[in-house]
Amino acid sequence: MAKHRVYTMSFGSVYPLYVAKAEKKGRAKAEVDQVIHWLTGYDQATLDARISDKTDFETFFADAPAMNPERVKITGKICGVQIEEIEEETMREIRYLDKLVDELARGRPMSKILRS
């Protein structure tokens, strides 16, 4: 089976879309970064490097320093698919990030987004 197209997309090409979605709803770029740090364990310098060096999504998640164990608490639908039912690990990680950015854009409090 061929890889899903999103795996080969550069994280740096999608990141500005995450930021734009959040800023359009009154949230800040720093909050998007905070969500990404929480999910992946990347620090700001490494995140910036991944954005600029055109790292693809598959590598972005495969090389993540410390995927947060609390991410399994992220539930619900994204793109019409129940996150908990996604079997392919990389796709589930991508959808976790999509869901967190959606929650941020909807105005959900950061403490609830970060499942604390």
Rank of each mutant, 00 (worst) to 15 (best):
K3F: 06
V6Y: 09
V6E: 13
T8E: 14
T8Y: 06
M9A: 05
M9F: 11
F11P: 14
F11T: 12
S13T: 10
Y15F: 11
L17G: 00
A20W: 00
K21G: 01
K24Q: 02
G26R: 04
G26H: 06
R27C: 07
A28H: 13
K29V: 15
V32F: 08
V32W: 09
V32S: 06
Q34C: 10
I36S: 05
I36P: 02
L39K: 01
G41T: 07
G41W: 08
Y42L: 07
D43H: 00
D43M: 00
Q44F: 07
Q44S: 13
Q44I: 11
A45Q: 12
A45K: 09
D48C: 06
A49Q: 13
A49L: 12
R50L: 15
K54A: 09
K54S: 10
D56C: 03
F57N: 05
F60G: 06
F61W: 04
A62N: 13
P65V: 12
M67R: 08
N68D: 14
N68I: 14
P69V: 14
V72T: 15
K73D: 13
K73C: 09
K73F: 10
I74F: 00
K77E: 15
C79V: 11
Q82T: 06
E84S: 07
E89R: 01
T90D: 09
M91Q: 06
R92F: 13
R92N: 09
E93M: 14
R95E: 15
L97I: 14
L97T: 13
L100G: 05
L100I: 10
L100M: 13
E103N: 05
G107K: 01
G107F: 11
R108A: 08
P109S: 01
M110Y: 05
M110D: 04
S111M: 11
I113K: 02
L114V: 00
R115L: 14
R115F: 07
R115D: 11
